[in-house]
């Protein structure tokens, strides 16, 4: 299946799902002629139309046009690596309220560098730790953004 066809199918599915949600928006006595669901429904219809054209076009030209881009060798591999990268982000969100900003950012820096380079050297640990301090100075001290302090705040 080529990518245009896949994107067309995805677009059509999104349009259908969005249409269902849009159609379930309740009516209101304060509504105008167009109403809160007016434009969303129009967007869904337009997206569906465009998706169908894309699907039609990709089916029609599939045999004629050579594939412009070949999948990278070992196409399983990249997707797996991407999931790992996302997991690091998810772990950050889950841990930062408890471990606090500085520690979690250090962990994030360390994890990503390790994940992408495959090694943990003393330099990497050092860079992650000092990087976290720089981030803390920049965001919390200088800009005054109240990043979660974590359970450390309760110890003092």
């Amino acid at each position: 299946m080529n990518r245009d066809l896949a994107f067309g199918l995805l677009g059509a599915a999104l349009a259908a799902g969005y249409y269902r949600l849009a159609a379930s928006i309740p009516q209101s006595a304060l509504a105008d002629g167009v109403g809160p669901r007016g434009l969303p429904i129009a967007y869904a219809v337009v997206l569906l139309g465009l998706s169908l054209i894309l699907i039609g076009r990709s089916v029609r030209t599939r045999n004629r046009e050579p594939r412009t881009r070949n999948a990278e060798p070992g196409s399983q591999h990249p997707a797996v690596r991407v999931v790992g990268m996302l997991a690091i982000g998810a772990a950050y969100i889950a841990l930062v309220p408890w471990l606090g900003y500085v520690v979690t950012v250090a962990g994030l820096l360390l994890a990503v560098t390790w994940y992408l380079s495959g090694v943990v050297t003393r330099t990497i640990v050092l860079v992650a730790a000092s990087g976290a301090v720089v981030f803390w100075l920049l965001f919390v001290r200088l800009l005054g953004i109240p990043h979660p302090p974590g359970f450390w705040a309760r110890l003092f």
Binding site: I93, P97, L108, L109, L110, L116, A128, F135, F139
Partner: peptide
């Protein structure tokens, strides 16, 4: 690897500031 790690940290720290919300992250 360093550059990407720092960009990632920059993103999670900066986005949090929009509404001080982990949901936004």
């Amino acid at each position: 690897p360093y550059l990407m790690a720092f960009i990632y940290a920059l993103v999670v720290s900066g986005v949090y500031a929009i509404e001080t919300s982990l949901f936004q992250v």
